[in-house]
Amino acid sequence: MTTKTAAKRDVPVLNPDLRARVADFLADYAHTIDDDRLEEWPGYFTADALYHITTRESDAAGLPIGIMHCRGRGMLEDRIKALRTANIFEPHSYCHILGATRLVDQGASVLSARTNFTVTRTMQDGGTELFAIGKFLDEIVVDGKALAIRSRRVVLESRRIDVLLVIPL
């Protein structure tokens, strides 16, 4: 950032160790899904966490229903159990590409984080296609060495889902 421009922005210095830990944490989350270790996915959240997938339009309109809405780790576990044993779909895999995370220390051991993402989906015909683009809006709780997501709102750019959404983002 240059000091010559009038519109300079103050960006507080965040503990670089903390920043690095959050980056690893968010990368681990994405890789857990990409590597089909979905049973580990709920473990990234606090017991009472919110996980909400919605669209940019619905988010802007303040509508409470999006595409998926889970409250509590139990519901996240149910989603994975349903995916593994109940739901029927063409098997596919994701690859998350994460953008840089804008991290803000909210105090009281809570960080807010905004991370853009791209997720590709590879189907049985061997083709890889763009599946989802959007942003993660997270509240991350820091408890000593442990990090956990208290709230993750996944805001998709598109309001159209191609085929279906069963693997979490």
Binding site: P64, I67, H69, M75, R79, N87, I88, L164
Partner: peptide
Amino acid sequence: IMQSNLTGAAGLVSLEDGC
């Protein structure tokens, strides 16, 4: 709101109809 999880593109009882 909670029951909306049942249907839609990610619906627990409807996502199969997507494919």
